[in-house]
Amino acid sequence: MNKERLIDNFIEMIKIHSPSKKEKEFAEYMVKVLKELGAEIYLDNGFKNYGGNSPTVFAKIKGNVEGEGVTLAAHMDVIEPNLNVNPIIENGIIKTDGTTTLGGDDKGGVACIVEALRTIKENNISHEDIYVLLTPCEESGLQGAKNIDWTLVPEEIKPAKNMLVIDNAGRAGIIAHTAPSKYDFEITFKGRKAHAGIEPEKGINAVSIAAAAISRMNIGRIDLLTTSNIGVINSDSPTNVVPDNCFVKGEIRSHSEEKILEIIKNYEEACKEAVSQVGGEYEFKYVCDFPTLKPKDDLKFAKEFAEVYESLGISTELKVIGGGSDSNIFAKEGYNSIIIGVGMYNVHTVDEYLEIEELYKTTEAVIKYISK
């Protein structure tokens, strides 16, 4: 591994502005790099479904060893503000001047992939087929992964089922293998307008219906593997009018979709009781935003990669996490993902930084895992 090149490449990457839905320049940069490494490329144009401008990049580097191969995955978009990143290297970390995010999430993962591929090629290291999958718009609802048209992906370039998703916060050695499903719900409470100062008795306050319903809902930490949150309560009525409309939006996450559906049923019962108490009507809608991520091989893949970390003197931790990622979407297509980190911290903030040594460690582990 060329450590200096790895860092130089990371710096080059973060200077290419690629917020969600605007990753085209970075995707073109990555296609050029992957072609130089001898990869076969396929571009999925699912971005047309959500108003983006960048394809999902599929790549395959043919191996010289028989086997199922491995997939290296990351996402190309970053969290704003990220224009004109001014990287500072200091005391073993890379950070910004505090005016932008760094973009280590997830260009640290992309840089890791590129250096691993370059090292393997330069040293003529034997390997099975290597697949690369780079998605746009991960940070904005996993839209890139959700909108892949898998029926159009050529069979010979469809990724290997075992997938290393290099997109975890924290140090090298942490291996996330299980993540929850997330359902979004929306409730519209409907009351009746009236003048709030002259004849409020003639109205039915939609905000009051919402309050009565929410007061009956179990929200927050529901159990060890289940959470719920309401993030939006909105009524646009002026204060001198009894509001006839109130909109509520929230989410439920759990490692059991049965548990989520049970909670949704309880929330609907709470709405019915509120309407019975206050009057008015309600409309309840919900949708699965992403499914659960669970190992498909009794943690065999996760443990294999843990052994690689351990052989390099890196302590490991197999983790169940509470967030979602592209891995959840890929799981629906039969992919067996583990999520590993490259030392990125304080992600999604202008205090984001990346620990250089942790980036080295995971890149070394990826090279060693692929080497045969």
Rank of each mutant, 00 (worst) to 15 (best):
Asn328Phe: 03
Val165Gln: 02
Thr151Ser: 15
Val78His: 12
Ile79Ser: 15
Leu152Asn: 12
Ala306Gln: 08
Tyr309Gln: 00
Gly197Gln: 02
Asp8Glu: 15
Leu134Thr: 01
Val347Asn: 07
Asn49Asp: 14
Asp77Lys: 06
Ile7Thr: 13
Asp167Ile: 07
Pro200Gln: 00
Asn168Cys: 03
Ser228Phe: 07
Ile209Thr: 08
Leu299Phe: 14
Tyr335His: 06
Lys265Phe: 01
Leu293Asp: 03
Glu333Thr: 01
Gly173Cys: 02
Leu224Phe: 13
Leu261Gln: 05
Glu358Lys: 02
Ile88Asp: 14
Asp105Ala: 11
Val132Lys: 05
Gln143Arg: 15
Gly67Val: 10
Gly341Asn: 07
Val114Leu: 15
Ile187Asn: 03
Asn124Met: 04
Ile339Cys: 04
Thr99Ile: 10
Ile88Val: 15
Asn2Phe: 07
Lys300Ala: 15
Gly203Glu: 03
Glu68Ile: 13
Lys62Gly: 01
Val33Asn: 09
Leu134Asn: 00
Glu28Ile: 03
Asn346Gly: 05
Phe10Thr: 05
Val242Glu: 01
Glu269Cys: 04
Ala169Tyr: 13
Leu43Trp: 05
Asn229Arg: 11
Ile174Tyr: 11
Val232Arg: 08
Leu318Lys: 03
Asn234His: 15
Thr226His: 11
Cys288Met: 15
Glu333Pro: 04
Tyr360Ile: 00
Ser140Gly: 14
Val33Asp: 12
Thr99Leu: 10
Lys15Gln: 15
Gly173Leu: 06
Ile130Ala: 02
Asp167Ser: 11
Leu312Glu: 14
Lys265Glu: 11
Thr99Ala: 08
Val114Thr: 03
Ile148Tyr: 13
Asp298Trp: 10
Lys158Pro: 02
Glu307Thr: 08
Glu40Ala: 01
Phe247Pro: 02
Asn9His: 12
Asp129Gly: 01
Pro87His: 07
Asp223Trp: 06
